[in-house]
Design a protein around this nucleic acid. Structure first.
Lengths: 410, 410
DNA sequence: TCATTTTGTGCCGACACTAAACAAACTCAG
DNA sequence: CTGAGTTTGTTTAGTGTCGGCACAAAATGA
């Protein structure tokens, strides 16, 4: 390596570094429009903390990229010259979002702003071979892309399992009959590549992605320290969104909240302890507490919902709900003591439990977390219809949000 | 407000925003030198990801500010032109670092690089009035500054209590006889101002600050997701350093780890539960388990250390250590499941317990955390002598690290 | 109709950094 | 001892982003 090459190498590092940082205010601006926090150029100006000139130029560039549109028709009423509105382009690029859950799987195209542009007919069975399912999902996505004629800039997948970083194996796909440690991220990426789809492919845990979606477009908007807890079938999942970024820990295993002790005299757990959140506050625990042995072929979540909404008068159901609320509350209090979130969002059965008796849950959490200050953390139900799916899309949008120019060009 | 003023206001926001971001690579460069990760301009170049020209200019500017020095005398040996060394200026500015603990308090001057430049004689008693103690600490600092003639650019204080954000009240100064909720941050800042010291004043929890110090200068260097757990007197403290920044949660109460359940059949805790980490793994629990009722006037930590180092042959002591290791391990495993850190650092008595039987502790944590992957997290003893004190200094240095030009000028 | 208010745009300059060529200081081989 | 090779430091010119400012545009209201 001679002197010239060495000098060139340093410059190359510098350039790569600059490109990785993303260029200027383009990314932040797109993120603001994407999350609905910049309805006009005027608020874009103040949110970005730049001058009107810069905000105008940035908006023009994003429009030129086909990502947003600047619409003259403004809702006036206030004094001064009315702002043009900034809206997500409804014919802009989309990402392929895919989700696998206990009872089936589905694919969709999602545009900026978290809007679902097209959905493939969902499937209600689960194959034991992940490659099979992920292949079908990508196929369905390709079909949707052909039908709509829109450009694809990435793909995201949500799976009901912890996803190890950085390789992306599914570590505990407990209710999928998938092999433990299946390299789902790699399989999905390979299928996406094979299908000729443009853009990178991402894979994450469904509760994590649901949390991300709720933070961007749902009940978590504006939170700096968001805790999500949810249960869908068996076990309890958690997620943390810090400053708008998913916190997955050093190897993707953070927020595995299922083994917090919430009942010292509780049933034994497969982890070796007893009274874990996983076995004390999931749909199976609820049905068992209510004295309803679940049938073999039913969805535990659906059955639980049914009970809570239509048979809440039954004292046994009511008592079971109260018991689960107490257990869940203890678990949440433990998490509050460790994480001190500014908001908690509940999904799945936990959402229904919150709806059934919000006061009881809030009281338990306040009572068992250390100070009223943190005990007073708001506990809200999730608000998005398909939050894991939208979250998978968020994952795929992230490179575009970080550096629109680079992601759409490269 | 006329048109010109409005335009001026937008520009003002933009300017403030730019100043807050800090100018260019100055801050990152100083941080690299500060933490010992940039011994020469060559590695500064690659670490910053800029060209040699930029790195050179940045180093020159930091030298002009009196913060670092560029020394020609280099340890050669390698090929090519030898680098000059970048070292912290030994006559540069300092910050006042102060610490209050269960058995006394002390003050020191700390320079860049975490080096203690001067220490005031420590005091071994604790007054019930925080204003009294904090006043003495600031006085001691002023004296040190006069003796050494160095410039002061800020002050930091470590207290053995959770510190509420954003106001800075001491929420649980359990073993200080201070009033609960005392506005220590405000009191300290007021004393610093009254003494005529330049620069802002900061206050934080001692375990948090110890973690910060270990991350910058000790066993935590290079960690992206560092968990610290320590016990000094009564109760157990925790801290988390994410990407080099202290994670204190939304109101400063994160990592209050003392109420994790680690022994379902354990002793009752003041929180209403039983078998909490706080009452199962602190020095008092150790002494009790070893059958040594602590004298009224001794330091629980010193007494415990004494036992562990000089009476470890005693079966009762050995059994007590094993019991505490098991309890601590369960607590750490719970934290690993929730936080998934890439490293754990133990301080106070926990450090001695780790030294007494490292294999036992590691085995418990690996056994009870969910996957071997995260169970294999390294558990290390803390390595700095006065890590809370150095951490308090880090707090005070932070504005300088973020924007050297702005902090030293304003 | 005109003053007032707010938003949008064009132009210039400041500033930080890249890029590239050159100079300097060492090692190592012969 | 000399020169090739290698790495580091410096100089100069150039580029791109964004602040600062003046002016234009589009509404409200007396």
């Amino acid at each position: 390596m001679n002197g010239k090459a060495a000098s060139g190498e340093a410059a190359q590092v510098a350039t790569r570094n600059r490109l990785e940082r993303g260029r200027g205010a383009l990314g932040p601006a797109l993120e603001l429009v994407h999350t609905g926090r910049a309805p006009t150029r005027a608020v874009l100006t103040s949110e970005l903390g730049v001058t009107r000139a810069t905000a105008g130029a940035v908006a023009a560039e994003l429009e030129a990229l086909g990502l947003i549109r600047v619409e003259p028709g403004a809702a006036a009423g206030a004094q001064g010259r009315p702002s043009h509105r900034l809206v997500v382009a409804d014919d802009g690029p989309v990402v392929l979002a895919a989700q696998v859950h206990a009872d089936g799987y589905r694919a969709a195209l999602v545009g900026l702003g978290g809007t679902i542009a097209a959905t493939a007919p969902g499937c209600e069975t689960i194959d034991a071979d992940p490659a099979q399912i992920l292949g079908s999902l990508v196929e369905a996505g390709v079909e949707l892309l052909e039908q709509t004629g829109r450009r694809c800039v990435g793909a995201g997948l949500a799976v009901p399992s912890a996803v190890a970083e950085p390789e992306g194996q599914a570590l505990n796909p407990l209710h999928l009959a998938w092999p433990v440690g299946a390299p789902v991220r790699e399989i999905f990426a390979e299928r996406v590549r094979a299908a000729g789809l443009a853009g990178p492919a991402f894979t994450g845990n469904d509760v994590n992605l649901a949390a991300l979606a709720e933070h961007r477009h749902g009940a978590g908007r504006g939170s700096a320290d968001l805790l999500c807890v949810a249960t869908g079938h068996r076990g309890v999942g958690g997620a943390l969104v810090l400053d708008g970024r998913l916190h997955t820990g050093s190897s993707g295993l953070a927020l595995e909240v299922g083994h917090l002790t919430v009942n010292p005299e509780g049933r034994p757990c497969y982890c070796g302890s007893r009274g874990c959140l996983d076995v004390e506050a999931d749909p199976l625990a609820f049905l068992t507490a209510a004295g309803r042995a679940p049938g073999p072929e039913v969805s535990l979540l659906k059955e639980s919902r049914e009970l809570l909404t239509h048979e809440y008068d039954d004292p046994a159901v009511r008592a079971a709900a109260a018991e689960l609320i107490d257990r869940l509350g203890l678990g949440l209090a433990g998490l509050v003591n460790i994480l001190n979130p500014d908001r908690i969002i509940l999904g799945g059965l936990h959402r229904e439990l919150l709806a059934a008796d919000p006061e009881r849950l809030r009281a338990v959490v306040a009572d068992r977390s250390l100070w009223g200050r943190s005990g007073g953390v708001p506990i809200l139900p999730c608000t998005l219809d398909h939050n894991s799916l939208v979250g998978a899309a968020e994952l795929a949008w992230q490179p575009v949000l970080d550096d629109p120019l680079g992601a759409l060009a490269g």
